[in-house]
Design a protein around this nucleic acid. Structure first.
Length: 691
DNA sequence: TTACCTCGAGCTCA
DNA sequence: CTCGAGGTAA
């Protein structure tokens, strides 16, 4: 390398450092020390130098934040440590209970107060940032907790996310929230409006929408912020002993960490913190929907562990649900797939909790009476931390003289069949069965849905049309559709029609479980359908099964058994099933587990009969799992038919790697044995059949 | 329950 | 350009 090249490389490096420093001051410290114009000048100098010397470009250069090409789609990423959700608390009682639970579980009931780390709960999107040897390599959304979407390109454009951090850790995964600050949101909306583009309803939606852009240059134009609040997977790094110290560490690594965090003692400390943040809420630069409390000591956190999918050592204390008053303009009824007739509130649209609410379920008649709601009432609508809006109560003082009481219709508005409500049941039902177009539509929609027959393109508008036009009565009719029948429908020209027919034809090859689920037998959901398919293995045997035989199926009790029997006792249903099979619907059939159970086989034989990703497989555990102990993992694996071995060999089917995985992981990689992350492991466990 | 993005395709008007 | 469907997120 020549002397001048060396000096160019050094110059580029210096410039990079300078720019990164200014980005940090601007985005994280919120205290820039140079003007935007000066920054731009330096930035363009770097762009020019890098363009002339492409070999000196590094992944942490500020120029690498933008400019990536649009994606086709977001790839999936599985989280090595699952991204769990938090339990919610809404009242002081809930908090007292939380503290008590922690103290009892820690055997600490009579000792001092527990130390809690507190922070605001940002109203944004949870994401994970992975750094390998200090370089930002991957950013992902939470997804279902186990698998999220890879939005690395978009996250690179977020100025407050460092592209390189000063750590020796082989892997360091940071968890945090992407959000849009109020001021940025308002400015963005003003700009959008000025350009004649759509304005966003609230900062959270604006942030979510920005992150979902396939073209990162669009994301780069959106003023997103990031705040770190936790650490996920790590390799080769020693973590501090408390959460607060971890946050301090993140701050030293130059991640934005909220200034509102605090460490407090006991319930009183939690109360004071909640009051303080509640008071500060309107003046905060971003939206929050509560605060989060975590047991500060990480060792104690481990001791407390997890319940199902949420940690026991942390809780979200939500602010009271936002409320607004509006007019209850009417109450319609909705007829569901099972004929259940549900009253639905039609509200004068009102903006509450960040969205416009115009519909809300009223559940059933009793609920309505209890709340004493009349049509025409001024009502209080509430949108809690969760998603479902609720009509909380009527303001009786404003009740107009002509307010009308809701009466449950006695005849179905769609098919005029009688609506009856059985003794002791809360729901009223339309007795029209499949004669009722509303029920027929719902049944078809259910049949076609992804988790059932998966007929792509058959949505509710289309189902509406084919039912209204009397083109389709039963599911079997779908398989007899032709181009001609579809020609009369709206938005159904040749191409769409052919696509739909192709999708229908494709759905013929399916599984017994999907088919059973799709039939929409009451009390037979996805899980029960799987159980039934596994047990009988064959539809004819299931249809012929007596109530007692049905009771032998895992998780089937008298109610479910009776419902299945009833379904197949109706000649009409058997007829439709026969027609469907005649139309060419196919699934692999097998002997089921009945045969082996009847032959008196137990234990080992039953385990071999188990299906699923782990049945009959040899699995090796390595590293520390976040959500369960080694023993628990072993127990769970064995219950789904796996053999848990101690060391990796070529006969090992899977290695499950937690954090700090050691030589077993290396060996697995050397032998080419598939390695599962904890999250992938949990997902597969859920898909397994236990006995 | 609502809002957002993306895609394919239909519709409309030049 | 507009619509429906499908997916995601809280």
């Amino acid at each position: 390398m020549s002397g001048s090249e060396r000096s160019t490389e050094e110059k580029i490096a210096r410039l990079r450092e300078t720019l990164n420093e200014h980005l940090y001051r601007y985005h994280v410290l919120d205290a820039p020390t140079i003007s935007d114009a000066l920054y731009d000048g330096l930035y363009h100098e770097l762009v020019a130098l890098e363009a002339a010397h492409p070999s000196f470009v590094t992944p942490d250069s500020p120029t690498q934040r933008v400019g990536a090409k649009p994606l086709e789609a977001f790839p999936e990423v599985s989280h090595r440590v699952p991204m769990l959700s938090l339990g919610n608390a809404f009242s002081d009682d809930d908090i007292v209970a939380f503290d008590k639970r922690c103290r009892t579980s820690l055997g600490n009931a009579n000792h001092g107060d527990i130390e809690y780390a507190c922070e605001p709960k940002f109203d944004g999107l949870a994401i994970s940032l992975t750094y390998e040897r200090g370089i930002f390599v991957r950013g992902a959304t939470r997804g279902d907790g186990a698998v999220g979407e890879d939005v690395t390109q978009n996250l690179r454009t977020v100025g407050s996310i460092p592209l390189r951090i000063a750590t020796e850790a082989a892997v360091l995964e940071i968890r945090g929230e992407v959000l849009m600050q109020r001021r940025d949101f308002e400015r963005l909306n003003a700009r959008q409006a000025a350009n004649g583009e759509k304005v966003f309803v609230n900062p959270r939606n604006a942030a979510a929408g920005s992150l979902r852009q396939l073209d990162p240059t669009l994301t780069a134009e959106r003023p997103l912020s990031f705040f770190a609040y936790g650490i996920g997977a790590t390799d080769g790094v020693e973590l501090p002993s408390t959460h607060a110290a971890s946050m301090d560490m993140l701050a030293r690594l130059r991640f934005p960490v909220t200034a509102e965090r605090a460490v407090v003692l006991g319930v009183d400390g939690l109360r004071q913190y909640f009051a303080r943040i509640g008071a500060a809420r309107p003046t905060l630069p971003f939206d929050i929907d509560g605060v989060v409390y975590k047991v500060n000591n990480l060792a104690l956190q481990q001791q407390l562990g997890f319940v199902s999918r949420a940690p026991r050592f942390a809780i979200a204390h939500k602010f009271p649900a936002e409320e607004a008053t509006t007019i209850l303009e009417g109450i319609d009824v909705q007829v569901g797939r099972t004929g259940a007739v549900t009253p639905v509130a039609r509200l004068k649209p009102v903006f509450v909790g960040g969205t416009t609410v115009s519909n809300a379920t009223l559940h059933n008649e009793d609920e309505l009476r209890r709340k004493d709601l009349k049509i025409g009432d001024t009502v209080i609508v509430r949108r809690a931390g969760d998603v479902i809006p609720e009509v909380a109560s009527a303001v009786l003082a404003y009740r107009p003289v002509d307010a009308r009481e809701f009466v449950m219709p006695t005849r179905c508005p769609k098919c005029d069949s009688a609506i009856i409500r059985l003794e002791g049941e809360a729901v009223a039902r339309c007795t029209g069965g499949l004669f009722c177009p509303a029920q027929r539509k719902q049944a078809l929609l259910h049949f076609a849905q992804r988790r059932a027959m998966d007929i792509e393109g058959l949505g509710d508008k289309l189902v509406d049309q084919i039912v209204e036009h009397n083109i389709v009565h039963t599911a079997a009719d779908l398989y007899r559709l032709g181009l001609l029948a579809l020609a009369s429908l709206e938005r159904m020209a040749e191409k769409s029609a052919q696509n739909l027919l192709d999708a229908i034809a494709q759905s013929k090859q399916t599984t017994l479980a999907r088919f059973l689920f799709g039939l929409g037998i009451r009390h037979v959901g996805e899980a029960t359908a799987k159980d039934l398919a596994k047990h009988f293995g064959n539809l004819d045997r299931l249809m012929a099964a007596t109530g007692d035989e049905l009771l032998e199926v895992h998780d089937v009790g008298p109610v479910v058994a009776q419902s299945i029997r009833q379904f197949f006792d109706q000649p009409h249903n058997c007829e439709v099933v026969a027609q469907l099979r005649a139309c060419g619907i196919r699934w692999p059939e097998h002997a089921g587990v009945m045969a082996s159970a009847a032959s008196g086989a137990v234990g080992a034989v039953a385990a071999v009969e188990l299906k699923g990703p782990f049945a009959g497989k040899t699995v090796v555990l390595t590293g520390t799992l976040a959500t369960m102990s080694r023993d628990e993992a072993k127990e769970k694996l064995e219950s789904v038919g796996a053999k848990v071995a101690g060391s990796v060999s070529k006969n090992t089917h899977f290695v499950i790697a937690g954090t700090e995985a050691g030589s077993k992981l290396d060996k697995a990689q050397a032998l080419g044995v598939p390695v599962l992350s904890e999250a992938e492991f949990i997902v597969r466990l859920d898909n397994s059949e236990t006995h």
